[in-house]
């Protein structure tokens, strides 16, 4: 039986060559799972907000003058929401093989996402309160800081997808082929991992589009709680 399933002397190189849909399924599933993990991460901040607000320990939940600027907050969220819309539109372009349009929208989405981050940094300096100014200030600083970190990492993902699309912009869909070991970082690799990067770009974008939309949803919830409910 063992000889039928595997033999030690079979050449490793000839056994590679995985259908691209496997990695595509991996990516899309990971996008969903990552969203689940992200949700539970931020649920901790939602819990902290309502818990600390309800007990209002020594009246230090929200001392006088501690108000997050709704103007800055709205601008930040707007940047991120529009960015996600652009990514989803770009996804449609990519699916229709209108790749130049996707790249344009992807670039705009990246810049808007970064603009939101810059605005968040500015908002921290302009709000008129700091992390030491009571429980609300703590939740505000903690939640927005970690949300910004998540956004930054997602924008990194967007950039890599965009950069791959740009690098292979002249390759036809289904026809691109990269040199063996091109991206593995392993100088000893001679075999192919993924023959056609353009194929995979679509699945990457689908996973990214879902996750970025989800994260923007988290940002909207943050906006409602931190700027409206508070």
């Amino acid at each position: 039986m063992s000889a039928e399933l595997a033999s030690g002397d079979a050449g490793y190189e000839v056994l590679e060559g995985e259908p691209p849909e496997v990695l595509a399924r991996n990516l899309v599933t990971a996008g969903y799972l990552l969203a689940g993990a992200t949700a539970f991460f931020f649920v901790a901040f939602v819990f902290a907000f309502f818990y600390l607000r309800s007990i209002d320990s020594v009246s230090q939940w929200k001392p006088h003058g501690v108000d997050a600027s709704i103007g800055w907050g709205t601008a930040i969220i707007a940047c991120w929401v529009v960015s996600t819309v652009l990514v989803r539109l770009g996804e449609l372009d990519q699916a229709a093989d209108r790749r130049p349009q996707w790249r344009l929208k992807g670039l705009a989405a990246l810049l808007l996402g970064l603009a939101g981050l810059v605005l968040q940094v500015v908002a921290w300096t302009q709000n008129g309160f700091g992390p030491t100014d009571g429980a609300f200030a703590s939740v505000y600083v903690g939640w927005t800081a970690f949300l910004s970190l998540f956004v930054l990492l997602t924008l990194f993902w967007l950039e890599t997808t965009l950069a791959t699309s740009w690098r292979y912009r002249n390759e036809l869909f289904g026809a691109a082929e990269v040199p063996a070991g091109h991206a593995s970082g392993d100088p000893d690799r001679t075999a192919h991992d993924i023959r056609n990067p353009v194929d995979l770009n679509r699945a990457e974008l689908a996973a990214l589009g879902f996750y970025w939309t989800f994260l923007a949803g988290v940002a909207v919830v943050a906006w409602v709680i931190l700027y409206l409910v508070a």
């Binding site: 950069a163 791959t164 699309s165 292979y168 091109h182 991206a183 392993d186 000893d188 991992d193 990067p197």
Partner: peptide, 18 residues
């Protein structure tokens, strides 16, 4: 690998397996 991806190199799966 992340730096390679930033520069547009495609995804890869394997490293130093042999």
């Amino acid at each position: 690998y992340p730096f390679a991806r930033l520069r547009g190199y495609p995804p890869s799966l394997r490293e130093k397996e042999t």
